[in-house]
């Protein structure tokens, strides 16, 4: 208590703040000395990684609701039509769900990411196969998000934002929480190391 009030009496801003982001190479003579403590990019990069297989279950489950809705609509429609009957709805729901399940599996197989020296590399897509390169210099911020289903399966998503018009597109799903946190930390370090310009 005492210490607290004493502190309160003194200037609260006495302690010098350590800047979160230090401009690289701001002081020339610091270059050599700072090299030891600056971020070692090599340690942070990793080899090509795939997602946690559990993500397939999340995707399959996420497909359940739309397929039930579609089945319901089809069932209701056929109940009123002269041909077919309400059972068509069940068939539709099953078929859609089965397709979604296959798609989820293929999607899992198509996914890969790699933390490279100067950029994040992503590869995914079943019908349209997309390969993205996100240079660290361009990263604005990195989020970790966990939806309700993802939480139930103990998974997390890392979302990388850039100023580009496709910014929010860059998200890596199906990571274990530790892995997501680790990735977020790595990307943060790498982004600081790559710090150069305005991100725009």
């Amino acid at each position: 208590m005492d210490a607290n009030t004493e502190r309160g009496d003194g200037e609260p801003f006495d302690e010098p703040l350590t800047p979160a982001v230090r401009p690289v190479g701001a002081e020339e003579n610091a270059d050599g000395a700072a090299a030891g403590e600056t971020i070692q990019v090599e340690e942070l990069t990793g080899s090509r990684r795939t997602l946690d297989p559990t993500i397939q279950r999340v995707w399959v489950l996420q497909a359940a609701v739309p397929s039930l809705v579609l089945g319901g609509i089809a069932g209701a429609a056929f109940a009123f039509l002269p041909i077919g009957d309400a059972w068509v709805g069940t068939v539709v729901a099953t078929v859609v769900f089965a397709l979604a399940a296959v798609l989820a599996m293929l999607r899992y197989r198509s996914w890969a990411y790699e933390v490279r020296g100067d950029s994040l590399y992503l590869e995914r897509g079943v019908i349209t196969d997309v390969t993205t390169v996100v240079p660290y210099v361009r990263i604005q911020h990195v989020d970790a998000s966990r939806g309700p289903i993802e939480r139930a399966f103990g998974l997390a998503t890392t979302v990388v934002y850039t100023a580009g018009s496709r910014g929010a597109d860059v998200s890596i799903p199906g990571l274990s929480p530790e892995r997501a946190e680790d990735l977020q930390a790595r990307l943060k370090q790498l982004t600081i190391a790559a710090e150069g310009e305005d991100a725009v």
Partner: peptide, 16 residues
């Protein structure tokens, strides 16, 4: 080049 944010290439089934 210095304005590039991300680079990606995509291939649809038909393109493949």
């Amino acid at each position: 080049y210095y304005r590039v944010q991300t680079v990606l290439n995509s291939r649809t089934v038909f393109q493949r």
